[in-house]
Amino acid sequence: MVELWYALAAFAIAAYVVLDGYDLGAGILHLFVAKSDADRRAVISAIGPYWDGNEVWLLAIAGALFVGFPSVLAAAFSGMYLAMFMVVWSLALRGISIEMRGQSHDELWRAFWDFVFAVSSGVLVVLLAVALGNVLRGFPLEHGAVVLPLFTDFTPSPPTGLVDWYTLAVALFAIAALARHAALWLSWKSAGDLRARCARVANYSGPIVVVSWVGAWAASLVVAHVAMRPLSFAFAVIAFGSLAASFVFARRERFLAAFSASSAFLASVIFGIASATFPTLLRSIDGKDSMDAYAAAASPHALAVGSIWYVAGVIAVIVAFARQYRDVEKS
């Protein structure tokens, strides 16, 4: 049961990265690829019907932690207090900017909300990636609670803050990978000049994704002691394969296939990390007092009851998503 909830949490994270990833990435690219108002409207329309639904997976992550591992939720959320509220505020500004933009035809009004949309998307990606970096590297944990400043001297050695060169390296990879992910989605969804620009971004950002990925990985092996297991090695191979496939498809302008391959890449990166760190959920930076899945799990009854409705909910969300994508495609 504990393994199941660990897997469910990993699945929710992977789904969130793949799905909200392309609309967050679209926010990062927005000001660069979309030059005219028509372009920008096209970008917003390409994510408009989906972004709200994609954020359901963020709640699914929090839900999996709350039901499965409540003490981890308590430690991680309160330990990253200021960063969590920056996430919350960015989510609010981003949601509002998408809804506000179309409310007026005034040029400055639209330019302002385009800017808010781009900045809040970028900040969200950086913060969420920084959180991931901290989970990999470990927290100063004492009795299940974390006291962690936002930053210290920016070196990755203790005493660490939330933001430093290692976690920023993870953030750089996240920005590159999600920007490319979004460029493929937009190339598939748009036409004309916008499509050409997005396709160019997708091709040029390829090497940056590879370099930043290898860099973040190497740093993780040094800083974060991430163990390589057979399963995580398998996921790494899949990640390499799908990233390569995504390059090839993008060159041949088969953007849906390239986007799917990019999705497989992102998902296998997450699954690779999850399988490498299992069963540790919150690693203690000095190796003692780490919170592992078995110790932090909720009671067996809560896990059993929760697994029934949670899995049913995940299936319902997937089915409804598939229907919605089909319906929007048709109309």
Binding site: V56, L59, A60, A62, G63, A64, F66, V67, P70, L73, A298, A302, V305, G306, W309, Y310, G313, V314, A316, V317
Partner: peptide, 11 residues
């Protein structure tokens, strides 16, 4: 309370 709060998010 994790159960009901997570149900709200999901459903």
């Amino acid at each position: 309370i994790g159960q009901t709060l997570a149900m709200e998010g999901m459903f």
